[in-house]
Design a protein around this nucleic acid. Structure first.
Lengths: 372, 372
DNA sequence: TCCGATTTGTTCGTATGTATG
DNA sequence: GCATACATACGAACAAATCGG
C-alpha cells in the first residue's frame, strides 16, 4: 500500500464512521500534511481520488468538504464488481471451505461475493443462472450440478459466453463445454485409494461411489483400474453406486446387506468421501466391527470430518481452500483482462490437482493380528 | 484555461478524430513534455483526468493507451437488492447452516446475497463495514465480532442508522446499540446444560466457556446459576475460560491438567459448544476415559458434529437454519417497509429462541454401574 | 471596501522505485 | 542487463479564491 493510498483510506474511514459529517469541512491540506507526516502532493493525490469517487468536494479558498451521499443515493452508484459462487451445497462438508477460500481473496481485492446453492438440482441451477444473467454479475465460479450427466442448462452457459461473462468450473465440468476448470484428478485419486488397500493385502474391497457427479464416476474408474493393474477380479456386488438423493439410505443399507451376507467377507472399503465414511462407521460399530482391525477403510477429501471421530481416517487430500482461492485468482485475472480491453497474452489454463494419500488409522495390513 | 486543461483537450481531440486509434499506444509522457513544452507533472495531470474519464488507460512500463469506448458503453443494468451477511466464520461449524437458512429465503425472494467473514477480528469487521458502506447494500445481517467487549466500530453502526441501512444482529448483540436481534437464550441454555448433569447426580462439573463472545459469558452465567440453585459450590478451578484464538490449545491443555490432578476428580463436563466437545473427546480417549461411563459431557448447538463421533452428544439445540431464515424474513420486511415509504404498523421485535436439551448418549447418572 | 491570513489550484524541478520489452 | 515508461514522493513557488476583521 502506497502512502497516498494509506492517507486516502484513513480519510475515507473518517467519512464512513461519521468523524466527518456531510457538508462538514475537513482539515486543510496543511494540517493533514502534519497529521500524516507526508508532503502536500501526497495529500492532494489522496483527496483527489476521493473527490473523483464522490466522497469529497473541494472549494478553492474555502476548503475541502464531505459530500452528502444520501442525496446521491438516487444517482447510479459506483458499482463494485460482483462474483457469483454457485455450489451444490453451501452449508455442508467441504463446500464452506472452498467458498471461504474464494471469498477471502475476492474480498481482499475489493470484489463483492454472492453465493448460491443448487442443492444438486438441475431446475434450481437453471433458476440461478437466469437470475445471474438478468442481474449484474461480472464473473461466475460454479460447481456444476449432476455433472455426470449431460446438462439441459447448457444454453445458459453458452449465453454467458456470448454476453462475455467469464465462468470457471470447480470440482467437475461438463464435457461439452470444455471450460476453464479446477479439479482434483479423481480417477487417480480413486486409484490411489484402492491401491493403498491392495498393497496392504486386501483383495475383497467394497467401493461406494456417488455416480450423479463426475467425481464419483471417475473415482470408480480409478478403483477398477487399480484392481486390473494388480490382477484382482472385482465382485460386481462390491461396487455400490448411489445418487445424491439416496446418500442417507442406500449405501448404508447396502453395506449392512453385504456384511450380513456371510460368504466372502470384505476386508476393505473404498469410500466416495469422508461424509459417507463417517456414516458407514456408524453401521460398522453397530455390527461390532472395528476399524481398522476388522475392516480397513479409505476415504476421500481429507475434510474436517476425517479427524472428528475416534477413528482418524486415511483419506485423499482435497485442496478445498486452495481450490477456492485459485479459482478466485483466476477469475480476477479474467475480469480485469476483460475490463482492460487490451489482449494480455497470458493464457489461463485449467488446473488439475494431484491427489495425495493421507495415511491415518483407518487402514492396516490385512491379516496382521490386532495390536490392542 | 490552464495548461494541463489545454493539453488534455489536445489529447482528447486526437482520440476523437482518430489520430489515436483504440488500443493504440499514445506518445510517452516524455515526448508529450517536449511536444507541449510543459513539465511532466502537467502532462500527468492531463492524462490522469482522461484516464479517470475512461478515455485512456495506463500500463506501467509499457505506455499509455487509448481505450475502446464502444464496448464499455454497456447499458445500465437492472439492479436487484443486495443483502450482506457478515459472520465471524463462514466455513466452520454452524455458520454455514445459518447462512444457508438466510440464503435460501433471500434467493427465493429475488435478493442477491453477499457474504463476508470477520474471523472474529475487530479490524476485519471494520474493513467490511467500510466496504459495505461504500458499496450499494440494502440491508445487513451481522453476527457481531467479540461481542463480549464493547466495540470500537460502534460509529459504523450508527452511520448505518443515519444512512438508513437496516441491520439485524444474530447470535449476540452489542448492548449499547439495542438493535433488532435474534439470539438463543444462552444463559438459560447454560443453566439447562448444567442442571441436566446435576440432576443426574454430578457434583463436580468442569465448565468450558469462550468468553470473548457474549454467548460464552452468558452460558457461564447459566452454569453458575444452576449450581447456586442446587446449592452446589463450584471449585473455581473447574471454570475454564478461553478466547477464540486459544480454542485449539488452552481448553485441551486445561482439561488434561485437571484430569492428571488426582484429587477431586470431575464427573461431568459442560462444554461451550460441540466443536470443542469433539476436541475434548480426543483428550479423554487418550486418557482412556470413557464417555459417559467415566465422565459425562453436555455440549451446545446440536450441530452435525454432535452425531459424528462414536459418542453421540447430549447437547442444546441451536436453531441454525431457522435463525438464518428468520433473520432473512425480518430483513425483507425491513427493506420493503423502507422502500414503500408508508409506515406499516407492524412492529418488528427481536427474537429469543428457547433452548432445548437434546439427550443422547454422552451423559448418564453418576454412580450407576457400567452397562457393557 | 480593503487587507491579510488561509486554503485550494497550477506549475516546475528532482529523485527513486518498479514494470516492460 | 539495459533503456524506456509509468508510479510514487518530496520540495518550492506563485496564483486564485474565500473569509473574517
Amino acid at each position: 500500500m502506497t502512502k497516498y493510498q494509506m492517507v486516502k483510506q484513513a480519510i475515507k474511514s473518517k467519512i464512513l464512521n461519521g468523524t466527518y459529517l456531510p457538508n462538514e469541512k475537513i482539515s486543510s491540506e496543511n494540517s493533514l500534511m502534519k497529521e500524516y507526516g507526508v508532503s502536500r502532493h501526497t495529500i492532494r493525490m489522496a483527496i483527489g481520488e476521493l473527490v473523483n469517487e464522490g466522497w469529497l468536494y473541494r472549494e478553492q479558498g474555502a476548503g475541502t468538504f464531505c459530500s452528502d451521499r444520501l442525496q446521491t443515493e438516487a444517482a447510479p452508484q459506483k458499482q463494485s464488481k460482483t462474483i457469483a459462487i454457485i455450489t451444490t451445497y453451501i452449508s455442508n462438508y467441504i463446500f464452506p471451505s472452498i467458498i471461504r477460500g474464494a471469498e477471502s481473496y475476492l474480498s481482499d481485492q475489493g470484489y463483492q461475493v454472492s453465493i448460491f446453492s443448487t442443492n444438486n438440482d438441475i431446475e434450481s441451477e437453471k433458476r440461478i443462472l437466469e437470475t445471474i444473467l438478468s442481474q449484474h454479475v461480472d464473473g461466475i465460479i460454479i460447481e456444476p450440478t449432476k455433472s455426470a450427466y449431460s446438462n439441459p442448462n447448457i444454453n445458459y452457459y453458452l449465453n454467458l459466453e456470448r454476453t462475455n461473462i467469464p465462468y470457471i468450473m470447480i470440482n467437475a465440468f461438463y464435457d461439452e463445454l470444455e471450460p476453464l476448470c479446477l479439479v482434483v484428478d479423481d480417477e487417480k485419486g480413486g486409484f490411489l485409494q484402492t491401491e493403498h488397500l491392495i498393497k496392504q493385502g486386501h483383495k475383497k474391497i467394497i467401493g461406494f461411489f456417488k455416480t450423479d457427479d463426475a467425481q464419483g464416476v471417475k473415482r470408480m474408474k480409478g478403483y477398477i483400474k487399480a484392481h486390473r493393474a494388480n490382477q484382482i477380479t472385482i465382485d460386481p456386488n462390491y461396487i455400490v453406486t448411489y445418487q445424491s438423493e439416496e446418500k442417507e439410505t442406500k449405501p448404508l443399507a447396502e453395506l449392512e446387506r453385504l456384511l450380513t451376507n456371510e460368504q466372502s467377507i470384505a476386508t476393505g472399503i473404498v469410500c466416495y468421501n469422508d461424509e459417507l465414511a463417517i456414516k458407514l462407521l456408524d453401521v460398522l460399530r453397530e455390527k461390532n466391527l472395528h476399524v481398522p482391525n476388522d475392516i480397513s477403510m479409505v476415504s476421500f477429501d481429507d475434510s474436517f470430518l476425517a479427524v472428528v471421530s475416534e477413528v482418524k481416517l486415511t483419506t485423499i487430500r482435497h485442496p478445498q481452500n486452495q481450490m477456492g482461492e485459485d479459482a478466485a485468482k483466476m477469475m480476477v485475472e479474467l475480469v480485469e483482462e476483460k475490463h482492460a480491453n487490451k489482449k494480455k497474452d497470458i493464457v489461463l489454463n485449467s488446473v488439475t490437482y494431484e491427489p495425495e494419500l493421507i495415511i491415518r488409522q483407518s487402514t492396516k495390513h490385512q491379516g496382521v493380528p490386532e495390536t490392542n
